[in-house]
Amino acid sequence: MGPSDLEEIISDIQPCESASVLVGPGDDAGIYLLNDTAIVETVDVITPVVNDPFTFGAISANNSLSDVYAMGGKPISALAIAGFSSCDYESSVFKEILRGAVHSLNRAGAILIGGHSFEDAELKFGLSVTGVVNREKILRVSGAEEGDIIVITKPIGIGILTTSLKGEKLTDADLKTAIGWMLTLNDKASKLALKADATACTDITGFGLLGHAYNMVKDSDIDFEITMANVPVLEHVHEMIDSGMIAEGAYNNLKFFAEKVEFSSYITEEDRLLLSDPQTSGGLLITLKEENLKVFEESDIFFSVIGRVIKGSGRIVVK
């Protein structure tokens, strides 16, 4: 399914017509108004991307927390969701995963209050996260305006690197930088987006840069014009692409979004797959007025301006 297919199915079954629903299906998270408090609700589950259980738990928690930050919110609590085979994994492995998740939650100022596990042949872990947000300062996936610049807050290529780890082309030590990025919370980037009066925001995860960028422009009268040379890429990524270490999800994403993206003739197939590479705990993709970029320039966080919003018909242009 595409990035919002499930949300559209949910909307068909139960339209969110309540006045208490501030943001329904189709964005990074749902927002519900309870009395005077705007509550952010999200859930995400992933399979292991590294070998160390503690690190996997911390990365998975970051990945789940990211949707709250993409809405401009602050996480407050979480429920753990775990699928694993009791015949294949010792309870100590699961305990380390939980310890890693709690470590990330502590850094985010949130707390683990429960969870649920189930038998599964493939190890899976994630969180259902609850947060709060200022109802007057909600970041949304749509809202970008012609003339805005496009900012990304983490380099891409994580899916290629974790695929290379599984294929034993790289070691955990080779992924040190990538792991550092996956362990980086999007809290600072979210606060800066709010301070810069961002017009739209999302986090980059399983549908890659192209998929999440398309979700920001679909059904609109704007396009995103992305400059490939300005897209930051993690170390080892290009050499792993040359070795054929590309996640199946990248091929699926590129196929799904092929008719929604216009590539310049000199953008290679390898670069197209890189832009489609599924990310775990990726950065935020933000649109804002160019004069407000100083908010990021005066900060200490990583960012790159990768393009501009132009008049169009809901497409992505890569040049």
Rank of each mutant, 00 (worst) to 15 (best):
F54D: 08
D187R: 09
T227K: 15
E122T: 14
A108Q: 11
V129Q: 02
D277I: 01
I31C: 04
I306T: 04
L293Y: 12
K95V: 07
T268G: 10
A200D: 02
K255S: 12
S91M: 14
G57C: 08
Y266H: 13
A108D: 05
L6Y: 15
N63L: 12
A189W: 03
C16E: 12
I59E: 04
Y69C: 00
K294M: 08
E298P: 00
T184M: 13
L288K: 02
E119A: 14
L79K: 14
R272F: 00
F56Q: 12
K74I: 09
V295Y: 13
T171K: 05
S276F: 03
D300H: 06
I111T: 15
P155H: 07
I316R: 02
K294N: 11
K218P: 03
P48H: 03
S220F: 00
E248M: 13
G83T: 03
L165D: 01
Q14V: 07
K195R: 06
F257G: 03
F296R: 02
K95T: 14
N35I: 15
V49P: 02
A250P: 05
S85F: 01
S64R: 06
T199R: 13
F125E: 06
A178H: 07
N134A: 03
A193Y: 03
A108W: 04
A200Y: 04
H116E: 14
N215F: 00
G244W: 07
Q279I: 05
N51E: 12
A82Q: 07
I150C: 10
D277C: 08
D67I: 00
F56S: 06
L123K: 09
K311N: 10
H238M: 08
K176V: 10
S104Q: 13
V237S: 04
L65E: 02
L105I: 08
V21M: 13
A250L: 05
S4G: 00
E235T: 15
S77L: 11
A200Q: 04
A178M: 14
T163F: 01
S281D: 08
A78T: 14
F302T: 10
Y89L: 13
L33V: 13
I111E: 15
L275E: 01
D277Y: 01
S265F: 08
L123H: 10
P25N: 02
S264F: 11
T199A: 13
V40L: 04
A58R: 14
D27T: 05
N51F: 07
D221I: 04
S11F: 02
L293N: 08
I160T: 15
A108P: 06
G249P: 09
S128Y: 12
D52E: 11
L273E: 07
I13M: 14
I156V: 06
D271V: 05
S86K: 15
E7A: 15
T177N: 12
L183C: 14
Y266T: 12
D271Y: 08
G24V: 10
V233Y: 04
V50T: 11
L170I: 12
S92L: 10
L234W: 05
K124G: 09
G30Q: 11
I204K: 06
Y89W: 12
T287E: 03
C87K: 10
G147A: 04
K294Q: 11
V231D: 00
P232K: 05
V45Q: 01
A101K: 06
E262C: 13
